[in-house]
Amino acid sequence: MFSNWYKKFSSQPHQPFFTSGIIFFILFMTLFLFSYLGFLNLDKSILSYHAYSMIFVIFIQFFLGFLFVVFPKFLSQAEIKVDNYMKLFHLYLFSSLGIFLSLIFYSQVTIIFQVLMFIAQILSFKLLYSIHKKSIVANKDDTKWVLISFFSGLISHALFIISNFDFNYSHDLARFSINAGFYLFLFGIIFTISQRMIPFFTKAKVFTYIVNKSKNLVLIVFSLLALKVILLSFQNASINLLADVPLFIIFVRELIKWKLPLFKVPAIMWVLYLGLYWIPFAFLLSILESVFYLVNTSFIFEKAVIHSLALGYFLTVLIGFGTRVILGHSGSTPHASSFAIVIFVLVQIVAFLRLFASFSINTNLDYIFFLNLSALLLICGLIIWSIKYLTILLKGK
């Protein structure tokens, strides 16, 4: 019985990787919540148990599940063999579990599992690169930029592991690696996939839609993100304008050019559009933060910019893509039922609540209460989504 289930469960790359991603998303968010509620006393900084886990453990597993499906299709290559991606899945699973448990019980050995996670990501990069290299298709730009973003992630991950050793600039190195991992690794991969797949899905739904993307869009965006990561290292909010203003202008201009038919597509599509609209909103917030800094106000933005992108963009697109892929590859027609729409709306509520928590630090309101509330609602939303869609993943095809 088990062998029959395992064969179905492992038959498509997204099934094991989405399953691991959603389970560890819930577990690490619970770890975060319990830490802030005082139920757990973690001796690691928030960079280690929250930022690191989101960037290098959780989101990447979701998008690897997607990449292992679409990379061969993009490049007209044979599907990845089950044994190849399942070996990686087992290494990701073991590393993720090791990081999670060691943070709770014995954080001195967390670095061992981080190194194992790093090795898993090197092997994942190697697998994707081998597919890219073998392909003879004329246009390999999108897969090239996925690989460049992934390689940036390997460098930032290595820097974070090095920062575990106590030396004069270890905290600065950790912060730099998190910024690079967030913008160049995660944002780079997710945006490259988004600008390829969202217009493609739109064209499939609205036959009259014309894809109108700017030339060298990903190159320009990635270059400006690299500049932003460098500027963030100076911890001077005002100079962030050098990257944020052009990024804001580019994304506003691009979304206007795309003319996404928001009211002509079903909910399974408009949720992806909503994710894209969060991008210029986040960079607008970053611009305002710099302006407030320049005029010497005491107003604090906390992590509003990061969470606008992480919850508003990354999570919205993840839920949108995830729901579509799970339904499509299980034999069902990709659509958003009333259940899915409720989850989409809940994600937006959680994103805005987390922003409210960031800004509440400037008032007499209880910042920690709203922080915990947003985390609790996110966990509930992930569990509710899992009740339906994790069941489909576990059944396999």
Rank of each mutant, 00 (worst) to 15 (best):
F292V: 08
Y209G: 08
N236C: 01
F59I: 15
M86S: 12
T192Q: 11
S95R: 05
V229S: 07
F301P: 05
F263D: 10
L128G: 12
L255T: 00
A180G: 14
F222T: 13
F74P: 02
A120T: 04
K126P: 00
S53R: 02
L186Y: 02
S170W: 01
Q114K: 15
F160T: 07
T143K: 00
I46Q: 11
A174G: 14
N4V: 11
V265D: 04
F339H: 09
A226C: 06
H157I: 05
F292K: 02
D141I: 10
P280N: 06
G188I: 07
F118W: 15
I383N: 03
Y49Q: 07
Y169D: 12
Q12E: 11
S290D: 08
T202W: 02
C380M: 13
I104S: 06
F18V: 08
S156R: 07
A267T: 04
L231C: 04
W278I: 03
Q12K: 14
A120K: 01
S96M: 04
F321G: 03
A51M: 08
K259F: 02
L262E: 05
N240Q: 09
F2S: 09
F207M: 06
L116S: 11
I326P: 01
T110P: 01
I155E: 10
L393G: 09
V271Q: 06
P13C: 09
T323F: 02
I111G: 11
K213H: 03
T323R: 00
I136P: 00
V305P: 00
I239D: 05
L247K: 00
I189C: 09
F234I: 08
F263A: 13
Q12V: 11
N168K: 10
H132D: 10
L318K: 01
S124Y: 09
I193A: 08
N139C: 05
I220N: 12
I387V: 14
I230G: 06
L219H: 07
T391V: 04
E79V: 11
Y49N: 09
F344L: 04
L33Q: 04
I122Y: 10
I122H: 05
T323G: 12
W385T: 04
I104V: 13
W278Q: 05
F9I: 08
V146I: 15
S96K: 01
H50Y: 14
P280W: 02
F167A: 12
F28M: 03
F66P: 00
N296W: 01
Y293M: 00
D366L: 09
M54Q: 13
I300E: 12
I239M: 07
S290P: 00
L276A: 11
A243G: 08
F352H: 01
